[in-house]
Design a protein around this nucleic acid. Structure first.
Lengths: 345, 345
DNA sequence: GGTTAGCACTCTGCTTGCCGGAGTGCTAAC
DNA sequence: GTTAGCACTCCGGCAAGCAGAGTGCTAACC
């Protein structure tokens, strides 16, 4: 039945969804009839609407209101009926420029792009960066950070920087730190964080035999620091855009739920993780998304890569009633932009 | 006139403000009469209220509503009538524990404390960290960060870590980087970022004479990197608490304004900078605060120090109707906690 | 002379009832 | 299969009415 809808029916569905996206109001048969050039009368449209409602694509808020697309309606629209708008030249340029301005470390880059994406789409934008464990190291350094405190700084190939504090470690001299940093760098050469850890543990066995006390201690300490894994990062920009959407502006409760979610990294991770693994853009509509607390929002997200491996994803979070035809190309472009930016890093 | 208010009048004002803080509703003469143990009849209270209104401390939303404190009313209350609640043992412990958990670099510490402060106060919490230029360096390191990219990492005494990317610099060998890092560290010893910059420029002259090309280039590069100053940081936690307050939950426009402000670092800086320089806690009520876009919010903030110098401030942002008796000690305690935490770093 | 009881007055918020508009579903005719 | 016509439903807005809360004023009280 679903796949068996005839062309006319799907055209009606498309118009309903698009009108609803534009107005946020239930749409009636009259409106659609006009929109379709009066080739069909309102009465006919009503019949078709009844069919669509039966099939689960539309719903009526109450007897004599117009129809509103259901989650399934949106889903069908996105999968089969969506006519993508191509990006305006200007928007592409803006995004490019934003990426250019993010010329600090990787997080700056990502933040700039996210911020602009959020502005262009008038939605809240989210970027997640997966834990960099699988990424290849560019360099490592041990730095003094106060009394009995040492900072282990790791820089990944893409430009991600992390630091972990090692506390309560009796002071090493500057020389020793330098010597050991150099040594660590050798070990790290071309390896991922994970591999480095293994390598260190390996080395630790040998080193012990060689009775170099300082080296031994330093190795043990690094191994320890590299064990508590950093969880990855989340950047959210344009939260205020949420209020641009009438569905949130009116309902304080929903608003509170979504703002709370923004404060929980783990929730955001769960929302975007599907996009992270897949290569194509992901659109989760309402109940489909994996987070029980937020059954009434949509997430449009796409992973970005560095070389062959996915390192994170970028996307938009908003009401189910989103302008997908515009928003999907935007997110795709932003993701591909990040991918190319990371390419030559 | 202001200072000439008799005891009875100020007691009435106090009760009105406190009742209003508790209920967010205009308060009437009857309520106050009861609250004061019926020692005065509602009619008398009404006379006093009329006086207070004339003096500018109260206002009436409309003829037959109760009274609401004005900004001036709150100000007077805070300055003269406030009975501070002492913190509950449990709250102090919680804050302590949060500080203990923030055992990563300084930003972790600050973020944890801010987050808990926000929870305890049920308001949005903000921390600003002033630009670390004036802080004393603990160590410096140059790290490879990809092709023709070098990362300059600086660690301050308090545990603040910064990194700047230097781009388009022809590659130095690992050895050269290490050698130069060591050299930079020597120069940095006990100096602030600002002083280091001066020292480098100084050295640059001499070095040129010595014809060490690598050192010269490295010095020039570092000087360049240290010139574009990082602006300091802002952490905001508990945004969702804003919605706990009826004054914001009802008025979408105000809500939007404040959420937008949260996305602009510079606005937050302006809001908290008075607290940063002063040593005592600062309470700005409504129109008093320096940011035109937000005339109807209050900021309670206090600077925290590291040793003798102020390095930032922590505070709460919320409606003018805040529970100051509770919130002021909380902020004070949080600030002093940060100060002591940074003491032994 | 300050304090208070009493009272008329005002304003809000809630409820009720009513009406027009929008939209539907059904039926019968095309 | 399509459509015109019509009865029906529901919402939103508006006005009227009413109870409740609170005030200001006046006159009496201690």
């Amino acid at each position: 039945m679903v796949s068996g809808m005839d062309d006319r029916t799907t055209r009606v569905l498309r118009h309903i969804v698009e009108d609803y996206i534009a107005t946020a109001e239930p749409v009636g048969s009259r409106t659609i009839s006009k929109k379709m050039g009066q080739s069909l009368s309102p009465a006919t449209i009503r019949n078709i609407m009844a069919d669509l409602e039966e099939a689960g694509f539309l719903a009526q808020p109450h007897t004599s209101a117009g129809r509103v697309p259901t989650g399934a309606g949106f889903r069908y629209y996105i999968d089969h009926l969506l006519a993508r708008q191509s990006l305006a030249r200007g928007e592409m340029d803006q995004l490019h420029r934003a990426a250019g301005e993010g010329n600090g470390p990787a997080d700056e880059l990502v933040r700039q792009v996210s911020r602009l994406l959020s502005n262009l789409a008038r939605q809240a934008s989210v970027v997640v960066v997966s834990s960099p464990e699988q990424q290849v190291l560019s360099s490592v350094s041990l730095m003094r950070a106060g009394v009995e405190r040492i900072l282990l700084v790791t820089v990944m190939r893409g430009g991600w920087v992390q630091h972990r504090l090692i506390e309560g470690e009796p002071d090493l001299t500057g020389d020793e730190l330098e010597r050991f940093s150099a040594y660590l760098n050798e070990l790290a050469e071309g390896r991922t964080l994970l591999q480095l850890r293994a390598r260190i543990l390996d080395e630790l066995g040998k080193e012990k035999a060689r009775y170099d006390r300082v080296m031994g201690r330093a190795l043990a300490m690094s191994a320890r620091a590299l064990t508590d894994t950093a969880p990855g990062e989340v950047f959210i920009e344009g939260r205020a855009n949420i209020l641009e959407q009438p569905e949130f502006a009116e309902d304080v409760h929903r608003l509170k739920r979504i703002l709370r979610a923004f404060e929980e990294k783990s929730v955001i991770f769960r929302l975007l993780d599907r996009a992270m693994v897949s290569r194509a853009i992901q659109v989760s509509v309402g109940l489909e998304n994996t987070v029980e607390e937020l059954p009434d929002i949509s997430v449009v997200a796409s992973g970005y890569r560095q070389g062959a491996s996915s390192v994170g994803s970028i996307g938009l979070i908003g009401p189910v009633r989103m302008d997908y035809s515009r928003v999907i190309p935007l997110v795709e472009y932003a993701a591909s932009l990040l991918t190319t930016m990371f390419e030559d890093r």
